[in-house]
């Protein structure tokens, strides 16, 4: 089954709403606690990235028999250097964003840590699609 969410790129007060809603869905489906935990953390990080860096976008989440696949699609600036972005502590977030408590450079490393598969497709100037997969 699928869920799609619009991710607002301006309103930080609703950032994380998609992950919260999806977490409730997983609990109702009786998904094991440790899987819910990994999905929520990874999904939240990716959602925040979509807000901060992507300027908003869309989230498509699908639950199949054996895995959960979640994509965040934005039309933002793209990631020029993926290797650098994957390093812990690396962040291109603005001072203003950091003041809000984001931009610690742990987003992508954390997503990798909590998922079974994780892919980034990015084109500078066009946008980024981040896809996370967690096995059931």
């Amino acid at each position: 089954m699928r869920r799609t969410y619009d991710i607002d790129g301006k309103d930080f007060s609703v950032a994380g709403a998609a992950s919260s809603d999806f977490k409730v869905l997983l609990k109702k489906l009786g998904i094991p606690g440790d899987v819910i935990r990994r999905v929520s953390i990874a999904m939240y990080e990716a959602e925040i990235n979509t807000v901060i860096h992507g300027g908003g976008g869309k989230c498509e989440a699908e639950i199949a028999d054996n895995r959960i696949v979640i994509s965040f699609i934005d039309q933002g600036p793209g990631i020029p250097d993926i290797d650098a972005a994957m390093q812990e502590g690396f962040s291109t977030a603005s001072e203003q964003i950091r003041e809000m408590g984001f931009g610690a450079g742990m987003g992508l490393p954390n997503i990798k840590k909590y998922t079974d598969d994780f892919q980034i497709q990015t084109v500078v100037g066009k946008g980024t699609t981040v896809t996370l997969c967690i096995n059931l």
Binding site: M1, L25, K27, K28, L29, G30, I31, I63, D65, L136
Partner: peptide
Amino acid sequence: EYEPIMKLADDLNEAMQKMEQID
């Protein structure tokens, strides 16, 4: 012990079918 009260069904497929009906 965890005692789930929100769960729709024990079987995942059954739970998903129910969730689709609910949607």
